[in-house]
Nucleic acid binder design. Structure first.
Length: 407
DNA sequence: AAACTACCTCGACA
DNA sequence: ATGTCGAGGTAGT
């Protein structure tokens, strides 16, 4: 751990069950956050470089003083009302969507759904961010047929090549996310292809052209009025129904007109960029969850057609209610490969103990390595199965360890 | 409507 | 060492 002088930071009292940035910032909602060895998260956001750190009781934050040139490069900070400059505290409350009581919501979802109650306890503090809608749109266009690591690389390349430079932190340049106009010029598609975007290059360029051609503020006009940009008073989001509110359905429909935007991407933008909590993006993970835990995958809904897609969303909305997309995100996170180690955390602890005890014994170290490989396979094979089965695997692996140690 | 197929790239795995 | 596979889908038949 590096020397973190947290006394210099601002802080907000937040429990890990209300917000866990370590999970929330890695679960594939946002693709731009970086974490250093000292446990500091950082990202360029709204004309500043924001740094975060979290412990058991507080979320610490500070934004870097930028030795910036007179004119801010990007005169239109996204998600903030024109002419208004949010302070760090406002920005964090807004970005992390801190108003809803997540602990209470988890309780409600658990009471309504035994499967949620079973899966959620190891994945508390997963909160839906309020990201800039345009950034979310482009990020999720990149997500098609892709993995989270590469999406992050692609978004990073977009910022480096087209986004305004805000400053440096720990020797690294920090760029804001590029505006639609910056991605709408001729030659962008070719360059993005050269940068490794593949077929998504065309989608990004064409969508940027379409959005740039719309009236200023068009994307934010699709927001849930209950979750407006900073500086605008919230108003009613409309009447609730299992199909979703009218405003949500309208936003979804309009997003579908953009290139590279299908139902899943549109729902991601609705949920994470436009504040519509009932949006339920159904991707391959969620489709698998729906089949495994919610009886989809048979008869009428044997494949993921548009009709099945809508039925899954309606099912989850009727089960979890107005913030169904939030609950869905918890289960999605629980299924992510990147978090599968959490299901066997105890084993890893034991491994560490063994290594420490037997330090200096070459033979044993080798056997430990072998066991780790076995563990990996177990994790991969078992990650979709019940926790009880994972526990069985734990015991087997531990016994194997002991045997190998003796030989 | 539903079912197929092509689509870029990259790291993991055999 | 080289081939195959699949990753948070979408657009076009």
């Amino acid at each position: 751990m590096g020397a973190l002088n947290l006394a210099e930071w601002q802080k907000l009292p937040v429990s890990l069950t209300e917000l866990c940035i370590n999970t929330t910032l890695r679960c594939g909602q946002s693709f731009r956050w970086r974490k250093n060895d000292a446990g500091v998260w950082s990202m360029a956001l709204h004309n500043r470089i924001l740094c975060l750190h979290q412990d058991l009781e507080h979320l610490y934050y500070k934004s870097l003083k930028l030795e910036m040139l007179p004119a801010p490069p990007n005169s239109i900070p996204p998600s903030i009302a024109p002419g208004r400059n949010a302070n760090d505290s406002e920005l964090i409350q807004h970005y992390f969507n801190l108003t809803p009581n997540l602990t209470e919501l988890y309780q409600e979802w658990s009471a309504a759904d035994a499967n949620f109650a079973k899966k959620a306890p190891k994945f508390t503090g997963v909160r839906i961010l309020r990201q800039d809608a345009w950034e979310a749109l482009v990020g999720f266009i990149c997500s098609s047929n892709n993995n989270i690591a590469r999406i992050g690389q692609m978004v990073h390349k977009l910022c480096i090549n087209y986004g305004p430079l805000l400053g440096h932190f720990e020797g690294e340049p920090y760029h804001d996310f590029p505006e639609p106009e910056a991605l709408s010029h001729d030659g962008v598609e070719a360059k993005l292809r050269a940068l490794g975007f593949g077929y998504r290059a065309k989608y990004i360029h064409r969508t940027a052209c379409m959005v740039a051609a719309k009236p200023e503020g068009w994307l934010d006009s699709l927001r849930n009025p209950e979750a407006p940009v900073i500086g605008v008073k919230p108003s009613s989001g409309g009447e609730w129904s299992a199909e979703g509110r009218e405003g949500y359905r309208s936003a979804h429909e309009q997003l579908l007109e953009l290139q590279g935007v299908g139902p899943k991407v549109a729902d991601c933008v609705c949920l994470m960029g436009l504040g519509w909590g009932e949006a339920v993006p159904v991707d391959t993970h969620v489709w698998q969850i729906a089949q495994r835990d919610y009886k989809f995958g048979k008869g009428k809904h044997s494949s993921l057609t548009k009709q099945t897609y809508d039925a899954i969303g309606a099912k989850f909305r009727s089960l979890w209610g107005k913030e169904a997309g939030w609950a869905h995100s918890v289960l999605f996170t629980a299924d992510l490969r990147a978090f599968s180690e959490r299901l066997v955390a105890k084993v890893e602890k034991k491994e560490e103990d063994i290594v420490v005890k037997m330090e200096g014994d070459v033979e044993v170290e080798e056997s430990v390595v072998k066991v780790e490989k076995v563990l990996e396979k177990c994790i991969k094979r078992e990650r979709d199965e019940e926790e009880s089965k994972v526990l069985e695997v734990e015991e087997k692996v531990v016994r194997k360890t002991k045997r190998k140690r003796k030989t």
